[in-house]
């Protein structure tokens, strides 16, 4: 690990001011610690957001649920408002990582963490994400890699909260050297075909200051399910978040998001269309789940993930129906 300075701003303006080239924002520090220990980043300074006032609130007001980027995964998971109307988010946060990590990891950092592809994370492989010429997962050890949109880079997006927040229609408030801006999460993530070196559109010197989730419509429910290899903590083989807007038994609108499927969270639009205006039952959920994995392009070792996704999509749709307020 290289040596770096530790900067402690107390306002957002000070934090933005401290973000000169070579500086990185630090929230919980979990992903940064991993990258530093692996020698993948060598910042000159870490700008610690923990002393900046007002970044760790959870409040329902104005447009819906306002979540500060420094809210930990543990607090999100335990918050009664989140557990109620924003259930997919509570369950995503509560099933990510370990209790110890959730006590420290923040939702902002969770959205922005780098992928866990073992070639990317290993200093020995200069893959496309590090400016190299190839994706080592292609023709390599790719059991945990992407089953969709995996032609350029086959790393999966690692963020559980991204999967849920995308289904819930969240947007980000961002401060930076120029004007503050708002970005829907829908357009925040960057596909490898656009720029393989990054996963999102956060610019240099920018800080996420708030995550805003609109009030869910009446008669809506959401759910998040994750399948790992073991019962206690694990990274997902598949994770799915669903928001269902209902009119009685019928599905008025569905949003279905697949995490751990592609390099950025995947909206399963064919599946959403398959469910629209249908009575939500086992048969329609099954049909939507089939549609969700249609066109998957698994690699040599991960076709098993397609089957898992199909099952988890079906179960999450039915769970979201059950969670309808």
């Amino acid at each position: 690990m290289n040596r770096f300075a530790w900067v402690t701003p107390s306002t957002i303006e000070e934090a933005v001011g401290a973000l000169e080239p070579g500086a990185l924002v630090k929230a919980g520090g979990i992903d940064l610690m991993d990258l530093l220990k692996e020698g993948l980043i060598a910042p000159q300074r870490l700008v610690n957001l923990r002393a900046v006032e007002g970044l760790d609130r959870i409040e329902e007001k104005d447009e819906g649920l306002h979540v500060g980027p420094l809210v930990t995964l543990a607090r999100l998971a335990a918050n009664p408002i989140v557990q109620g109307r924003y259930r997919a988010l509570a369950d995503a946060a509560g099933h990510a990582a370990t209790p110890q990590i959730r006590n420290v990891a923040t939702v902002g950092g969770n959205l922005l963490q780098r992928p866990r592809c073992w070639y990317f994370r290993s200093e020995a492989f200069v893959c496309k994400k590090k400016g190299g010429g190839r994706c080592y997962a292609h023709g390599g050890e790719n059991a945990y890699h992407a089953i969709m949109n995996n032609k350029t880079c086959a790393a999966v997006h690692p963020s559980a909260t991204a999967t849920a927040l995308l289904a819930l229609g969240a947007k980000l408030r961002i401060a930076g050297p120029t004007d503050a801006r708002e970005v829907p999460l829908e357009t925040f993530f960057v596909a490898p075909e656009v720029d393989v070196m990054r996963e999102n559109a956060l610019g240099a010197g920018e800080i996420i200051t708030e995550i805003v989730i609109p009030y869910p419509p009446s008669e809506a429910g959401s759910a998040y399910l994750k399948q790992g290899e073991k019962e206690s903590f694990d990274w997902p083989l598949a994770e799915v978040a669903v928001l269902l807007e209902r009119d009685g038994n019928r599905c008025k609108r569905a949003i279905i998001v697949l995490g751990a499927a592609g390099p950025v969270p995947v909206r399963a639009r064919t599946a959403e269309a398959a469910l629209a205006d249908k009575v939500i039952d086992d048969a329609t959920a099954r049909a939507a789940a089939k549609a969700a994995v249609q066109g998957a392009t698994p690699l040599e070792q991960n076709a098993y993930k397609v089957t898992i996704f199909e099952a988890i999509v079906r179960r999450t749709i039915l769970a979201a129906r059950g969670n309808t307020a």
Binding site: V7, P9, S10, A15
Partner: peptide, 10 residues
Amino acid sequence: GGKGAEVAGP
């Protein structure tokens, strides 16, 4: 340091 923020180390 950046405008007023406290700097420690490296």
